[in-house]
Design a binder for these strands. Structure first.
Length: 330
DNA sequence: AACCGTTCCAACCGCACGCCC
DNA sequence: AGGGCGTGCGGTTGGAACGGT
């Protein structure tokens, strides 16, 4: 059976966009917002399907898009996030300011994937290729840890995406124009959202376990930021009041704290103990700070996991950094 | 100059999901 | 409950650009 096509394709243009078409699309959205994408082409005088218009806008014409070479920091972030999330490009894109999922996906496929492969790292598992063959129980457990961390991050991102959607909805009530072209920003500002990885990759200190804070004001989108607290589970804090916020509180808490989300292989894994803190460790970090975490497992086995994961992640970044310096590919 | 192989990325395609009726 | 619609997402592809011979 299958669903009907997104639009009547007869007589519709495909392929590269002309400057005239770009101008029509830009002018229309600037004046009216995009509204329904299906209805947009006719209103804007374009012989395109709505899907094509949406893609052209989101991947190319949108004013808040940075084009050109990816910075080293952006590359590092992509690699880290890909190790956590896999090919979830849209989720990754929420952490890379002004880059689209399509651009990140292309960059991964044409540059980063090849570079990791050249360095002997499996771009799918982010492990040295030999390790995949020599997997032991301990290594399997490490992989499981990574998987649980990914689940945690996945739940968080889903919650975050929900917030953005709600925020967009809310903004659309406040401001009829969907996009603010003059300021070059959309209603959603995922780049300012919490980023646990920044804390790790920028050498955050005094890290014990993460507490994320969500800040909402009446007219601005909600902002979530990562910070450090002494709780064993991530918590969310709201600033601002409204029914929408209340709704968000419920959904977020469900996504972040449900222990069922983090069970696997008939074994309850405390991700905060075995995974997340290791992600937050850094080269110069004071282990005593971490070890003092009241809910942390201080067993020797646990320390090995922290150390292994830390070394693994840092080795990826070091390899990338060194290849950046020496590789003719770059 | 012509040809050929490779790289890169904009754009397409099809599926998934949420919402609404 | 289920079907239609709108949109988002990830995989794939077409073709322009580039480099080597």
């Amino acid at each position: 059976m299958g669903r009907s096509p997104c639009c009547d394709k007869v007589g519709l243009k495909k392929g590269p966009w002309t400057p005239e078409e770009d101008q029509k699309l830009l002018a229309y959205i600037e004046e009216h917002g995009h509204g329904s994408w299906r209805a947009l082409p006719a209103k804007a005088g374009l012989q395109r399907c709505g899907k094509s218009c949406r893609l052209r806008w989101t991947n190319y014409l949108r004013p808040d898009i940075k084009r050109g070479k990816f910075s080293l920091h952006e590359e590092q972030t992509i690699i880290q996030l890909h190790a956590l999330l896999g090919n979830r490009w849209s989720a990754i894109a929420t952490h890379i300011p002004k880059r689209t999922d399509n651009e990140i996906k292309n960059y991964w496929n044409t540059h980063l994937k090849k570079r990791l492969a050249k360095m002997g790292i499996d771009p799918v598992t982010h492990k040295p290729k030999n390790d995949v063959l020599l997997s032991t129980d301990g290594q399997s457990k490490n992989a499981a840890n990574l998987s649980h961390m990914a689940q945690w991050e996945s739940a968080r991102l889903e919650a975050e995406a929900r917030l953005v959607r709600i925020s967009k909805l809310k903004s659309s009530f406040n401001t009829p124009t969907t996009y603010n072209l003059s300021s070059g920003s959309t209603s959603a500002q995922p780049n300012r959202s919490l980023d646990i990885l920044k804390a790790w990759s920028s050498g955050g200190y005094d890290l014990e376990s993460p507490t994320s804070t969500l800040t909402c004001s009446e007219n601005a989108p909600p902002i979530m930021t990562s910070s450090v607290g002494d709780n064993s589970l991530p918590t969310i804090e709201f600033v601002g009041t409204s029914e929408l916020h209340h709704d968000m509180t419920l959904s977020i808490e469900a996504a972040w704290t449900s222990p069922e989300s983090f069970r696997g292989n008939n074994e309850h894994v405390n991700i905060m103990d075995e995974g997340f803190n290791s992600l937050l460790l850094n080269d110069s970090g004071d282990r005593s700070l971490f070890d003092s975490g009241k809910d942390c497992d201080n067993s020797a086995a646990g320390s090995e996991y922290y150390e292994d994961n830390k070394n693994y992640w840092n080795s990826i970044l070091n390899l990338v950094n060194s290849s950046q310096d020496h590789s003719p590919m770059l």
